[in-house]
């Protein structure tokens, strides 16, 4: 499954675009961009569906009760899907499927995607943000914790990448 549709934009110009969106976020909302915050609220709302009393009483999700989804990052998360869809559609990059290397069984790729998600979801709560909300948004203000997070992210990524190489390369 190779790339199709238009080739991606010049990365530097894309970066400037993203940086301006982040600036707009700070100028309008007073806070940066974020994705994992919305994901966590979604998790809390799902948890509430299954076990309302437990969720309300839990130490972490409980602070968001009872309106788990009434939060600006939830709306930003929704916007991400819409923007991503519009862009992919107009660029001819809508490609349903499981993205993986030719030599990789679909089951393994699915497992890695799920497992990676669990780690990322967990880590985003521990660090109060992910690549966008913590590394990028905090990094742009030169906040120490965000820059440490950014460095740690890449160090770990490069260090462990070899174990997951098989899902992309034969």
């Amino acid at each position: 499954m190779g790339d199709s549709g238009k080739p991606p934009m010049n990365p530097y110009l894309a970066g400037v675009f993203l940086g301006l969106v982040l600036t707009a976020s700070y100028a309008v909302l007073g806070a940066g961009l974020g994705a994992s915050g919305g994901l966590a609220r979604l998790a809390a709302a799902l948890s509430h569906l299954v076990a309302p009393a437990h969720t309300q009483a839990s130490a972490y999700f409980g602070a968001w009760a009872p309106h788990y989804l009434s939060y600006y990052l939830v709306f930003m998360f929704l916007g991400l899907f819409v923007g991503g869809f519009l862009s992919a559609w107009t660029a001819g990059r809508l490609q349903p499927g499981l993205e993986r290397g030719l030599g990789c069984p679909p089951g393994r790729r699915a497992l890695f995607a799920l497992g990676g998600g669990v780690l990322v979801g967990f880590a985003s709560r521990l660090a109060q943000g992910c690549t966008s909300g913590q590394a990028l948004s905090g990094g742009a203000l030169l906040l120490t914790g965000s820059l440490i997070f950014l460095a740690a992210l890449f160090i770990a990524g490069f260090a462990v990448a070899r174990f997951f190489r098989g899902q992309w390369y034969a």
């Binding site: 961009l33 994705a35 994992s36 994901l39 998360f77 991400l80 899907f81 923007g83 991503g84 862009s87 992919a88 993205e99 890695f112 995607a113 799920l114 497992g115 990676g116 998600g117 669990v118 780690l119 990322v120 979801g121 967990f122 880590a123 985003s124 521990l126 660090a127 109060q128 992910c130 690549t131 966008s132 913590q134 590394a135 914790g145 965000s146 440490i148 997070f149 950014l150 460095a151 740690a152 992210l153 890449f154 160090i155 770990a156 990524g157 490069f158 260090a159 462990v160 990448a161 174990f163 997951f164 899902q167 992309w168």
Partner: peptide, 25 residues
Amino acid sequence: AHLLGGLILGTGFAMGGWCPGTAAV
């Protein structure tokens, strides 16, 4: 928390191929 969170998140990124924002897209 930021150091440890970054290390775990980087591992998950390399394993899953996504981070939350890009996965939404």
